[in-house]
Design a protein around this nucleic acid. Structure first.
Length: 296
DNA sequence: AAACCTTACAACCGCGTCCCT
DNA sequence: TAGGGACGCGGTTGTAAGGTT
């Protein structure tokens, strides 16, 4: 017996989302919060599958998402994390502020994989690396089976959780929610490129969202929320907003979203992880064990 | 200018996991 | 404890946009 389709195929619209659909979805989530996706198509009248609604929200419409314009720093972080975690994009995304797993996965498949391959070829020929700062020796997916790598990762995470439990009062355990801080720690060598917040095709949606992401709560603001739409905050936010779009201050959406974000905090403190990763990039000699040991 | 090729990324699909009854 | 529904994740595809010939 096969798995039943997640939704009725008849009458379910597929393909690119229109701005109108985006507005409907955003309005609904703003009022009800994300979750209970099954009911979203019925309650909004959208001819979309619940999965599609969730994906659209998490990968595109959710506040605090930075799109495109990966910095060198982010690239290196992703490469290191991929080497450590494998293709566990959701886990990787939890360490890269403002990036979705889908975005990282796409960027890996379209850019980083090629870059690394080219680096390997360059090094095989004895020439200069096309990817300065990285050695292909680092990326050796076949050196360990994926299951073994995952096991090692899980062990390390368990260790870290125990460590955190024991040293919770340490001030160093702070997930740096300010993306400018996390990226600026290496910005002296890798200045961040300006990031486009939304694809131009949905710029109007970004403007819409800007109205309720421009003033996130000052305290306990979610990671990445500060710059969620800064690229388009040019004062031209004149998109017509439906009356049922409420202001960020009065919306419960941010509370929903904040709780989600805090739940998705990385198991490792980012600052510690970054220190390890970037120290490691210059001292790697051939094994994950040595690196993971450096954490503790 | 048109045809073809390549690239980038949004979105879909299927499976695994979690949670509720 | 088992069954089923809902959600999350990773792999893959479709297609629009840009580049090249």
């Amino acid at each position: 017996m096969g798995r039943p389709p997640c939704c009725d195929k008849l009458g379910v619209k597929k393909g690119p989302w229109t701005p109108e659909e985006d507005i409907i979805l955003v309005s609904y989530i703003q009022q009800n919060g994300p979750g209970n996706w099954k009911s979203v198509p019925n309650n909004t009248g959208l001819s979309r599958c619940s999965k599609s609604c969730r994906l659209r929200w998490t990968n595109y419409l959710r506040p605090g998402i930075k799109r495109g314009g990966f910095t060198d720093h982010e690239e290196k972080l992703i490469i290191h994390l991929q080497a450590l975690l494998g293709n566990r994009w959701a886990a990787i995304a939890s360490y890269v502020p403002q990036r979705t797993d889908n975005d990282i996965k796409n960027y890996w498949n379209t850019h980083l994989k090629k870059k690394l391959r080219k680096t390997e070829e360059d090094e095989a020929e004895g020439g200069p690396s096309s990817f300065p700062g990285f050695s292909s020796n680092y990326h050796h997916p076949n050196s360990k089976g994926q299951w073994e790598r995952r096991l090692q990762t899980d062990i390390n995470m368990a260790k870290q959780a125990l460590h955190d439990a024991l040293y919770m009062d340490r001030p160093s355990f702070i997930y740096d929610s300010n993306p400018s801080c996390s990226s600026s720690s290496h910005s002296s060598t890798t200045p961040a490129r300006p990031a486009s917040t939304y694809a131009s095709s949905t710029e109007n949606i970004s403007r819409l969202l800007q109205n309720w992401t421009r003033k996130p709560p000052k305290n306990n603001s979610p990671p990445g929320a500060h710059q969620s739409t800064t690229a388009s905050s040019d004062g031209t936010a004149t998109a017509s907003v439906p009356n049922n779009i409420v202001s960020p201050e009065s919306s419960s959406l941010f509370q929903h979203w904040e709780s989600k974000q805090s739940a998705a905090e990385p198991l490792f403190p980012l600052s510690l992880l970054e220190t390890w990763l970037f120290d490691e990039s210059s001292s790697y000699v051939g094994g994950h064990d040595m690196n993971t040991a450096a954490i503790y």
